[in-house]
């Protein structure tokens, strides 16, 4: 890996890392969703300094060039991210469903109980006690 490549990769990784930390700091991303981004950027930083690890990993998976390993890693990262979002969206959909149903049932009970005292007042108005 040339020094130019190292500097560029390091800058990108540090930017991703800092940007993610900043999003968590501003409460725009929850900690649980930052985990994958932080782990990926940290792995990138480690691999920049331990290039031989990347070469070793490349031979382990049978790839020819270390860049192939990096691309594979990126695709895997995006895949895991998408699966994580699909799981979360499914859970949120179920929660929204439960909330809408609860809301409908409670709204009915609320309106029923709210109408009851009015009915009693009306009755009193119609039949005033002597």
């Amino acid at each position: 890996m040339t020094i130019k490549q190292q500097i560029f990769s390091l800058l990108v990784s540090i930017c991703v890392f800092m940007f993610t930390i900043d999003l968590v700091r501003k409460k725009r991303v929850r900690e649980e969703y930052s985990l994958l981004w932080l782990a990926t950027s940290l792995t990138m930083i480690i691999l920049i300094f331990k290039y031989e690890w990347l070469v070793g990993l490349t031979s382990l998976i049978g790839a020819v060039l270390p860049t192939t390993t990096l691309f594979l890693g990126s695709i895997l990262f995006l895949l895991i991210l998408s699966v994580q979002f699909s799981i979360k969206i499914s859970k949120l959909t179920d929660q929204v469903k439960d909330l809408v149903q609860e809301n409908a049932l409670l709204r009915y009970e609320f309106e029923k109980s709210r109408n009851k005292p009015e009915e009693r007042c009306d009755d009193k108005g119609k039949n005033p006690e002597p």
Binding site: K97, V100, Q101, N103, A104, L105, R107, Y108
Partner: peptide
């Protein structure tokens, strides 16, 4: 009829399940 209102459109399956929950409760 007794009427339950969904806050927004949720689809047929969710609608009938709301009815089941009401009936059971």
């Amino acid at each position: 009829a007794v009427v339950l209102n969904h806050a927004f459109n949720m689809g047929y399956g969710v609608t009938i399940q709301t009815g089941y929950k009401y009936a059971y409760a």
